[in-house]
Design a protein around this nucleic acid. Structure first.
Lengths: 334, 334
DNA sequence: TTGTAGGCGTTATCAC
DNA sequence: GTGATAACGCCTACAA
């Protein structure tokens, strides 16, 4: 038989409300009864029922995450699991739980989120990436359901989000490459419409400006996606032009890997190549690939923090948080 | 204001119990009222409250997973996310949710599971790997809390589990290697005390027996773990003996990668190398690494199925399920 | 400081 | 078939 608050009350010879107050650490309670109640709790091994509690106080203490299953590649796997770990870390510290689900298609995603909100199973939702014209954001906004986004959304007004400073990290890395004496950096990116790509391109440009170096549009190559083949093709085309270059800055490790493959094939040596995301694969390249670690775990941690804190009425000065990246220098940084 | 079952009842001019019956698709209900109720539901846009439902019928419709955060390497990341995806797949189809958490240490893990059970937030728990003398299994067993294990546990009596048939897949692969004409296969494994390793070793031995080939203990190398360095070292030592061999069967892709690294360094060519797990890295090796895909997603799917079905009283003939592996032949299969 | 009682939104058990 | 009504386990006015 389950032991309930009533049993505890009986055992401690108090009312259920008293037990409840002890549990919630209410002020108005005498030391004496407090002790008696605690004793009873211990003796009966009483554990509060989270469900009943939720129903009574209209708080779930639970967050929902929806993982897009569309891109189940190395990078997203790595990113997702790290972000989820970060979220779990903060959630646990605040006694929150997290429920997750993979969506098969985008349509599923909204359906699932709808269900999550409607069934009132969760207090808030965490979106694992912002797309342009994100329908889920629209939906949650309109519904006034609490949520946080990992990745800066198009409209940031009044919504919680966390992200890296992609402009800054790109700027700093390009600056570093230039300061190392490289004269010509090729920019290779994917997904032209994503904020990430734009921001990193701007960082590239700014680093050139600040260092008083010209760059030509010829050196800026942007493909449609971030797969290995895209990197391979982009650099292949570039090589045909026989332009000189001594560094390749890519916006993604997988692009970088494609680039390195081609460079190796063509025996182009001692060219600095850098990527983003610092996927496990990076250390397995020859030369080992230098990359910018975007700190996925911290992104997750802060996403959960922003959301939970706002649910709990804890005042965070900001509606967003920027997680610093870390450049991991490896052998490909000539 | 939230719309509840009462509002629907009022709107449809029936009792709440009737609405409830309609919702749960009860038999005894006239078409007429059913329609009226559905209309009211639609009109008011009523969504049942999952929490209240849980409280009333003592069912959570929620599973819990605990991820060990100890080993956050490529393999586990890949395995975990795939398994979680599989679980999510079946859970969604049965209208179950899944809550997860990472444990920092083993101690945490039990604490977290305890909390999960006690707070009666979940109906069952899914353990993502079986260790020897697993304390969490002991705990759950004693508590009679429903759970399923991915990975055959030590004591299988009366507990739900899913796993690959490691003996069989090892046997089949070794048989394949032998049939291909290889005369001497080196066995390289890690974690000597794990069932997986033992089973795969037995498969290796059996394949030799069946094909009437002798194998010497000299060719069976087992290290303490499954890291790249271990594979590298084991094969290095073996090479010193100048024994002839034409294939290396490893119990783990990462071991295999270590082996291939050494073989490349020593310019040992055309030796068949195989691994297990089929991690993303496998396709990035040169030559691309042949590997046994253990179907992590299916493992997760069946784990969820076994657990949920048993919770729902759906009769599965078996208390366990074996997921077939798939050998992925790549260039390293000379 | 503590107790009483009503409510959270359902489902389940009775009657009818 | 359908309707009252009592759980489910906890919280929280309000009263004492």
């Amino acid at each position: 038989m389950k032991v309930t608050i009533k049993d505890v009350a009986k055992e401690a010879k108090v009312a259920t409300s008293t037990v409840s107050r002890v549990l919630s650490n209410s002020e108005k309670i005498s030391k004496d009864t407090k002790e008696r109640v605690y004793e009873a709790i211990k003796k009966l091994n009483y554990k509060p029922n989270a469900i009943a509690r939720s129903l009574a106080n209209n708080k779930r203490h639970m967050l929902g995450v929806v993982l897009p299953s569309e891109a189940q590649d190395m990078i997203s796997n790595h990113f997702f699991i790290e972000a989820m770990k970060g979220m779990s870390l903060y959630a646990q510290s605040m006694n929150y739980f997290i429920t997750y689900a993979f969506s098969k298609e985008e349509k599923d995603e909204i359906l699932y989120i709808e269900e999550l909100c409607n069934s009132s199973l969760v207090d808030g939702i965490c979106l694992l990436r912002a797309k342009e014209k994100d329908k889920t954001i629209e939906f949650l906004k309109e519904k006034k359901f609490p949520f946080v986004v990992i990745g800066r959304p198009e409209e940031t007004e009044n919504i919680l989000w966390v992200d890296n400073d992609n402009f800054k990290s790109s700027f700093e890395l390009n600056d570093k490459i230039i300061k190392r004496g490289k004269k010509k950096i090729v920019f290779i990116g994917g997904r032209p419409h994503w904020n990430v790509t734009k921001d990193r391109l701007n960082g590239y440009k700014m680093a050139h400006e600040v260092n008083g170096i010209n760059f030509s549009k010829e050196n800026i190559l942007i493909g449609e996606d971030c797969c290995e083949e895209t990197g391979y093709k982009l650099i292949s085309n570039y090589l045909k032009k026989k332009n000189k270059f001594d560094a390749v800055f890519t916006t993604d490790d997988v692009l970088a890997i494609g680039v390195m493959k081609k460079l190796k094939e063509e025996k182009v040596e001692e060219v600095t190549v850098t990527g983003f995301n610092d996927i496990p694969l990076a250390t397995y390249q020859t030369p080992t690939l230098s990359s910018v670690n975007i700190k996925a775990q911290e992104l997750g941690y802060w996403a959960a923090k922003l959301l939970i804190d706002s649910l709990e009425g804890i005042n965070n000065p900001n509606k967003h948080f920027i997680v610093d990246c870390e450049f991991i220098k490896r052998d490909s940084f000539y």
